[in-house]
Amino acid sequence: MSGDATVDARGTRCPVPVIRVARATQDLSPGSTVVLLADDVAARSDVPAWARMRGHGLTLEDEGSWTRYTVVVGTTVARST
């Protein structure tokens, strides 16, 4: 899988965007990036919270009616037991 995957989750609602970005980052090596496009209001809270729990880096860019989330896969995958 390439490191510049883009997931377009616009038009889907909570919790679909965060599930799709989680699937896209699965098995990627640290430092890879995944871009998520989403317009669901809940994603504004949930994608940052998910990234924090998983130890991924994240930047948000407002594109008007939707948001671009750029995820940088973390070196320590903070998956709790």
Binding site: C14, P15, A42, R44, S45, D46, A49, W50, M53
Partner: peptide, 11 residues
């Protein structure tokens, strides 16, 4: 409330 706290709002 959950959104203001910056925590997961789903589940």
């Amino acid at each position: 409330v959950l959104a203001a706290m910056g925590v997961l709002t789903h589940g």
